[in-house]
Simulated scan of single mutants.
Amino acid sequence: MHDIARPPHIEGHFESTDVVRDVVIGLSDGLTVPFALAAGLSGVVASAHIVVLAGLAEIAAGSIAMGLGGYLAARGDAEHYASERLREESEIVERVHDEEEEIYEIFEQYSVDRISATPVLEALKRNPKAWVDFMMRFELGLEEPAPNRAHRSALTIAFSYIAGGLVPLLPYMFVQDASSSLRLSVIITLLALALFGALKGKLVGTGWLRSAVQTVTIGGAAAAAAYFLARLLNAHHP
């Protein structure tokens, strides 16, 4: 009797977590901050043109600031990884016994006794690079950053911020009355927030409905707070 060939097992893990994180950071802030600014200005000015100009200025400044922040964060991660790797490379030479004990301690966390872990340790000792890789991953919990990660992070966050920021401004570009534009902006932006939240939840596996509701709630609350604060301050302005 012949064995029936089984199809290859393909695991469906989503691996582009860094890219998703950068897109989420850029889009969420891009949708929320200009939306809140436009809503706040709509409470005190009647000209949609002014709202558009202020919104575009904020998008330009915000995308640069967010992109720079992403660049510095990614550079910091890369420098931290390089520094820790140099330290580990030194320790497996100068403090061999301590590093061996750390290997045993790591395996103990997975209920692997010393006798079973010894062959793995001996194999790692014959390959210093693999030993360092193992310690970086399982002792320190650090993954090597991808090449040019800082530049890609900066560009991804900046362009995501711009894309998100233009959404709430679209009605103001075509409707001259700021009050009417605000109503359209609320509808469009909340729909965009819901779609973005659902897609994010689907990608990262947290549930599309929960993520959509959470994103809409946060974005809507920020815009409402800005709008009513602007109206309140304008009412008390002499």
Rank of each mutant, 00 (worst) to 15 (best):
P8F: 00
A73W: 01
A46W: 09
E89W: 07
F159G: 04
S111Q: 13
R210C: 02
A194W: 08
A48K: 07
L209Y: 03
L142M: 14
V112H: 08
D177I: 04
A198Y: 08
H97Y: 12
F107K: 06
V20H: 03
G220H: 04
L72C: 08
I157R: 01
V23T: 00
V120C: 05
S211T: 09
A154R: 01
S160Q: 05
G30A: 09
E91C: 01
E15I: 13
H151T: 13
G67C: 01
F107D: 08
E139I: 03
A61D: 08
M136R: 00
V96Q: 13
M1T: 11
P119Y: 10
R21W: 12
G164F: 12
S181P: 04
G62W: 01
D113Y: 06
A150Q: 02
A150C: 02
V52L: 04
E101W: 04
V112F: 10
A224L: 15
A57D: 06
F228K: 05
R210Y: 10
P34H: 10
S153C: 10
N234C: 11
G70S: 01
A60P: 06
E108W: 08
L191A: 15
G55Q: 06
L72R: 10
R152Y: 12
S116W: 00
K200V: 12
A46Q: 15
I92H: 00
Q214S: 05
V20N: 07
P34C: 09
A154F: 03
D113E: 08
T17V: 09
L193P: 03
L233F: 15
F174T: 14
A39T: 04
I115V: 14
E88R: 03
H237K: 10
V33L: 11
Y104A: 02
P8A: 06
Y81F: 13
I115R: 13
R137A: 08
T215Q: 12
E122T: 12
V33D: 09
R231W: 08
A123E: 14
V132G: 00
H97L: 13
Y81L: 01
A230W: 00
L169W: 06
D113K: 04
L140V: 02
S42T: 01
L233E: 11
M135L: 15
G40I: 04
E101N: 11
A212P: 02
E102N: 02
L37N: 04
L193Q: 07
R95I: 07
T17N: 11
P34T: 08
E79T: 08
E89Y: 05
H97W: 11
E58C: 03
G69R: 00
L86T: 13
V52R: 01
P34I: 09
S180T: 13
G165N: 11
F134K: 00
H49A: 15
G201Q: 03
G69T: 00
L232K: 10
G69E: 00
A48R: 06
Q176S: 14
L142C: 03
R137N: 06
L199V: 14
I4K: 09
E144H: 06
H80P: 02
E15K: 14
V24C: 09
S180D: 12
E139G: 01
H236Q: 13
G197N: 06
S111E: 13
F14N: 11
A46S: 15
F107R: 01
R6G: 01
Q109M: 14
A235Y: 12
L155T: 14
L53G: 10
H13S: 09
E108R: 12
